[in-house]
């Protein structure tokens, strides 16, 4: 038999390859978001699609989302990912996209509350009963405490963690930048796992049992409690934390090219609606709407929080001083130790 066997198989494979991927005609919207918002946007995307259909004579749309470390997601949009909207962990990452001309300057003023429809803060998640007695930022620097946090170079949440600790140290008696740098150095030496994103850190702490304390988004800490039962972990509120305002905006160049501006803008506006705010609260983000916040009751206890503007003069300054190449994080963090 001289005939060559797989020829027919090859032809079959080629025919299969000619079938186009995802041959759907539904208009789609892509939300490029950060790590811990997966559950929130899964629920919100469905809610928005229903809302849009109701408002637009039954037009069906499909909202996709992509999740990862906030910094790397911004990088992907800069590299050409066709995001219609970005909902990232911090304004700085949105600003990085705006600097490349993909988003108009002044985007932050386009929506209420600095374009942050919900807020969060940084809390501690400890093992049940808090066996190491970790009450405040200073305790994290103690000998023998294992700290889990993501890497500030790639994760938005990690930058909030870092700045919250810094702000606390500055406000202690005799506090200064030098004292803050010293404290951060000691905390970072206690870090057992430095994941690239917030969710990776949560998995390390919760699932793989790494470390004594996870520095986490408040929403991420509550989600871990919900997923794994309240019996295993405690949420500890430090005496001072930072008000995190995750920013959302339309990616102007992409929506103009794709013709999706109207639906993209409606999507973001819907985050501020009672339904959007209630979904945010359900997923443990602090809603802006006072009524929804009050209805959530004891889930969001009042907490002493500084803002990035008052404590650090805004993200551009904070980024330059702490996370850019040669910033305080580079000076402090020596992984080989």
């Amino acid at each position: 038999m001289a005939a060559f066997l797989p020829r027919r198989a090859l032809l079959g494979a080629a025919a299969l390859a000619a079938v186009p991927a995802g041959a759907q005609s539904l208009p789609t919207l892509l939300n490029v978001s950060y790590d811990p918002t997966r559950e929130l946007y899964r629920a919100f995307n469905a809610a928005f699609a229903a809302h849009w259909a109701k408002e637009n004579g039954g037009q069906r749309i499909r909202v996709n989302s992509s999740h990862g470390g906030s910094g790397s997601q911004a990088r992907a949009v800069i590299d050409g990912q066709q995001a219609d909207v970005v909902t990232l962990a911090l304004a700085y990452d949105v600003e990085a996209i705006a600097e490349r001309g993909l988003i108009d300057k002044g985007w932050m003023g386009r929506l209420p509350h600095n374009s942050a429809p919900y807020t969060s803060t940084i809390v501690f998640l400890t093992r049940k009963g808090n066996p190491k007695g970790l009450r405040d930022w200073g305790d994290l620097a103690k000998e023998g405490v294992g700290v889990v946090t993501p890497n500030p170079k790639t994760s938005g949440g990690a930058r909030w963690n870092y700045l919250a600790a810094w702000a606390w140290a500055q406000r202690q008696p005799g506090g200064s930048d030098a004292a803050a740098e010293e404290l951060l150095g000691r905390i970072l030496r206690n870090v057992t796992v430095l994941d690239t994103g917030a969710r990776g850190s949560t998995t390390s702490f919760v699932q793989r049992g790494q470390g004594d304390v996870l520095l986490a988004w408040e929403n991420e800490a509550h989600l871990a409690l919900k997923e794994f039962g309240a019996g295993q972990f405690d949420i500890v509120l430090p005496s001072l934390s930072i008000l995190a305002e995750p920013s959302v905006t339309v990616v102007d160049r992409n929506v103009d090219r794709r013709g999706t501006r109207a639906v993209a803008e409606a999507y973001l506006r819907h985050l501020y609606s009672p339904e959007g705010q209630a979904l945010a609260a359900q997923h443990f983000y602090r809603p802006r709407d006072a009524g929804v916040l009050a209805a959530a009751g004891g889930v969001f206890p009042p907490l002493n929080m500084v803002t990035i503007d008052e404590a650090f003069g805004g993200w551009a300054e904070a980024q330059k001083a702490h996370f850019a190449d040669g910033g305080s994080f580079d000076r402090i963090y020596r992984p080989s130790r």
Binding site: R38, N64, S65, H67, A76, G200, T203
Partner: peptide, 20 residues
């Protein structure tokens, strides 16, 4: 680009499920 239902292959999808 990790777009759910669009550009996730099986190995990437497994990681996403694990992280969720």
């Amino acid at each position: 680009g990790h777009i759910r239902g669009e550009t996730n292959t099986m190995p990437l999808y497994i990681e996403i499920l694990y992280n969720e």
